[in-house]
Design a binder for these strands. Structure first.
Lengths: 212, 212, 212, 212
DNA sequence: AATGAATGAGCCTTCATTCAT
DNA sequence: GATGAATGAAGGCTCATTCAT
């Protein structure tokens, strides 16, 4: 499943890209402040610096902006995360670096993450899958890293445990943004990252031990 | 911080309570289906079985319904969770029971949890704190259980680690509902609960070990 | 095919009827002046004497007003025509009276007829048939009268000629309104009626004669 | 009253003519499908094969296209009708031929006729007369033919009856297109033409007889 | 001459809220 | 207390027209 194409009346692809970047930027700012529903298309146009008519040259419906925004956020998260991961011969070290990189992205994109969390549900039944796919991709990045750790006997997760663990990693990062009202009251990003790394890492390391 | 009082034009407290129960029930159903913003007050009134005029005898603004709903959901979660926890002499057993009970509630109230997750942000700046307080209460329930485990040397969490761990427990439960599109594709509630228990438990047990 | 029911949010049937009468009256006036497309719903509401919100309590879409108008016009034409026809033992006399009555109605409802002629095409594919049916009904009234004339040997139309002749009668009346820019420059309604009666009547009387 | 001149920004007359032909062709197609009001200038430009900017080099306002279309249709009707009429020494034969020719044109230009009937009213008060004049010209063609028939004693119409009769001839043809939903259900063009010829001809032949 | 991006007035429609009955 | 008709602000979206390139 690729990115969904939103048609534009304007033909110049370069221009479309530039204008849409403006739109997204403006929209994110508005969404942060008042959410998707309370943001009017006029506000977005205005903040983007052009008229309402022009806005509609680059989208078809209000919801298109939301899709554009969600898509852009994921794109950026993935891009930043990917470049943060790098590679290391030691599987666990790589996993750790990936997590730290991902958490750092979550920290720097807090607002965007919150927007995503709260507005995804407003996407149409048609657009939603495209976005969920990207979320799932994120999960899979960690699944693969975990799989490598398991393959190299650095973690002893069962096959079925990997997905759950990967989920936890992904979520832990997002929650830094989404539950900032409580978490950021108690920790700074470094402390939080370190803490979560250990909680999650040791969980994964010892999960196969017998328990009561 | 107590529950926030929503004024009603109707004097008879009994009646107010009965009607509001109807309102909440109707609203939750609507929110599940289309979210807060796309649900009209008319729909709520209709589904509740009375006229739009009557609805406004029991609330002042559309948002009041959302508050009522959020409040009611938390109330129910807490009530059910509380009765599920019970007591056990062994601190870890009690923690485990609490977690299992909580997860079971999350499973049975999936829709409600999703509604909460997606609509809280629509609460006014004024109402939000009341609701976040309840969320925080949930966290504290687990913080206390963890504190007891630590006190009885069953877990060796540092003071500052407790809050983060408690957060993870709370979140893990909510995610069963909120990320059902991915998690429930892979697990059933029992498997998920068991898995998370072990991942989280061992994480908390071994978190203080030295790590690379 | 009965009249199509346009749903209303207002329950009081009596009120619905009264308000819709106002709407129709206002709309006809607007349509006369500027046509359906250039008439705004606000203008209709205003001319009808209530707010735009109220208008939409009695219709769903702008086009509903058009349907209401078309339906009302036909209803009135039929009602007036019916009461004008009466009965006479002599079939031809009855036909003549019917025609004269019909023409008189066309004369008194000129504006409405013109509106109909020009706006019917704006009805949705869904509504159109209901209106065309009424037009066809009009035709059939004359077909029956002609059939009686034929049965009583007062006219010698072949079966297949009846429909065409009936059409001509119907049209001749409508044209008094629709082509008033030319016809009413040359005739008054009485002259026109008398003239058409004779042209059409003798046509029908002698149509079966051999022609070159 | 001549044709009304629509100014163009482009100097080259040849080009103007060519482009306008394209515009008209495109517009007619659009009007057939959705009427004047629902057709956008963009659609016309696109279907004509050039840009919206270019369209506005050849017209000033949307309505200009409508005028161009109406004018073109009449032009074509007249041209085709004229070439169909021919000449015959016998006045009635010529009348008949003219009618048959005219009906045949109406048949082949059904869509255009319908467009005209429904959109003329959308012409500005300023343009309308030019178009009505052409309609009147059509009438006059038949008035003249009828006058000749009368002069040669082949028909005994009174002076004032000629215009009405001519009107009926013109209308009968147009109705084949405009009321095709009912007429073409019952007849084919040949039957219809023959039938109308006889109904109208005998009407005109015997109109001066005394009637009840 | 041709292009097509930009504009913004304006339209239809919805819906939270009020208030007379 | 209950009802539901009335209100009108507000929002999404369209499209004729312009103008810089």
């Amino acid at each position: 499943m690729k990115r969904k194409k939103i048609p534009s009346l304007v033909k110049d692809q370069k221009l479309v890209e530039r204008r849409r970047k403006q739109i997204i930027e403006a929209a994110v700012e508005c969404y942060k402040e008042k959410g998707f529903h309370k943001t009017t298309t006029r506000e977005i146009a205005e903040k983007a610096g052009f008229s309402i008519g022009t806005l509609y040259e680059y989208i078809r419906k209000k919801e298109d902006v939301l899709y554009l925004v969600c898509d852009a956020i994921y794109e950026e998260v993935q891009r930043k995360a990917a470049e943060a991961i790098g590679f290391h011969t030691d599987a666990v070290v790589q996993l750790k670096r990936a997590l730290f990189g991902y958490f750092s992205v979550m920290d720097s994109m807090q607002d965007e993450v919150v927007v995503m969390y709260q507005e995804v549900k407003s996407l149409s039944k048609e657009s939603l899958p495209y976005v969920l796919k990207k979320e799932r991709d994120m999960e899979e990045v960690f699944e693969e890293l975990l799989t490598r750790c398991v393959a190299e006997k650095r973690l002893s997760l069962l096959q079925k445990e990997i997905r759950c663990a990967a989920n936890n990693l992904v979520i832990a990062g997002q929650m830094w943004a989404f539950r900032r009202w409580t978490l950021q009251e108690a920790y700074d990003i470094n402390t939080y990252t370190e803490l979560q790394w250990r909680l999650l890492y040791f969980g994964m390391k010892h999960v196969s031990e017998v328990t009561e």
